[in-house]
Simulated assay, not measured.
Amino acid sequence: MARPKSASHDLKREEILDVAAQCFARQSFPAASMNDIATACGTSKARLYHYYESKEAILFDLLDRYTQRLLALIGEAEAHAQRQNLSEREALHALVRAFLAEYESSATRHVALVSDTKFLGDTQRELILNRQRDVVAAFTRFIKRAYPGRVTPANQTALTMMLFGMINWTFTWLRPGGPMSYAAFADEVVAVLEQGLGG
């Protein structure tokens, strides 16, 4: 009979994933070892193997949970827009703000999503890529509803990726406690959406 998991099992996994994401961001996924992750967690490699059988298993769990979180944010934003009776533009603005608030606390997980998905096995990689496609498709829907006169079949991908270009690479330059907060940056993104740079 299998030993039941402790109540803190998932919490410990989250802690391991946070530390592993930091190791992957700092050293790169190929360079970071299970020993590096265990040391950074303040535990033994044997204890780490109690939770994860390999570095690849850690990466998949990290990206699996993170992409599910991003999809959940979209669902929460849609529900919030309905409850608050937001306009389509307000709904898009709220989604941008929600994603940037998530990025503030998940920068290293986002680095892994952008940089390390290619290291997964074929089936796992396809699952993560499909979730990323779902996130992009959802943003496209929000943008089309917010700016129906501006978005066409010919430019909708470009406009969606332009928005992602503004928010997805914040981990390379935007720092908590820096001269601009994530919330202030979200306001700037919304201002560009509404008024352009000349507005």
Rank of each mutant, 00 (worst) to 15 (best):
S33T: 14
P153N: 07
Q68S: 12
A138V: 12
V96N: 04
M1W: 03
A79E: 15
R13W: 07
S105I: 10
C23E: 08
L59D: 01
R150E: 15
H93S: 09
Q132D: 05
E126Q: 14
N35D: 15
V136R: 10
R26G: 03
S6W: 13
F185D: 02
N35C: 03
H93D: 14
G75V: 10
F29C: 05
M34D: 04
A138L: 05
E194P: 11
Y49C: 04
A183I: 14
N35K: 10
R150T: 09
A46F: 09
T117Y: 01
E102H: 03
V189E: 08
N85K: 12
R3E: 05
T160R: 02
D116E: 06
N130E: 15
A72E: 08
A101R: 12
E126L: 11
F99P: 03
A138E: 06
F171N: 05
A146N: 11
L63F: 02
Q156I: 09
E126W: 06
L127W: 14
S8H: 15
E14T: 05
V96R: 03
L71F: 08
A186H: 04
H93V: 05
Q84R: 13
K5H: 15
T67C: 14
T170A: 06
N168Y: 01
T172G: 07
G75C: 06
D36N: 11
R175C: 01
Q82A: 13
Y51R: 02
L11G: 12
S33Q: 01
S106N: 09
E56I: 09
G199F: 11
I74A: 12
S106Y: 11
D36E: 04
M180V: 12
T39P: 00
K45C: 01
D64G: 00
K12C: 04
R175K: 15
V135T: 10
R26D: 05
M161H: 11
D187A: 02
M161I: 08
G177Y: 06
L11N: 05
R47L: 00
L120F: 04
S106I: 05
R145G: 06
L129I: 14
I167F: 09
G42K: 13
A40T: 11
R47F: 14
E56F: 02
V190M: 02
T108P: 03
V111D: 10
P153W: 10
D122P: 15
L92V: 01
A138R: 08
A46H: 13
G149W: 12
E188M: 05
F29P: 02
T157Y: 00
A191Y: 02
T172Q: 10
M1R: 02
L127C: 09
A186Q: 05
G178R: 09
S44C: 07
P4A: 04
V136T: 11
M166T: 12
M162Q: 06
L95T: 10
S6A: 12
R97V: 01
H50A: 12
F60E: 02
L197E: 06
E194T: 04
A79P: 00
R13A: 15
H50K: 12
A77S: 12
A154P: 00
S8L: 13
H93E: 11
G121L: 05
A107L: 08
E126H: 07
Q68K: 15
R150P: 00
A107E: 12
E78W: 10
S181L: 01
E90Q: 15
K55V: 02
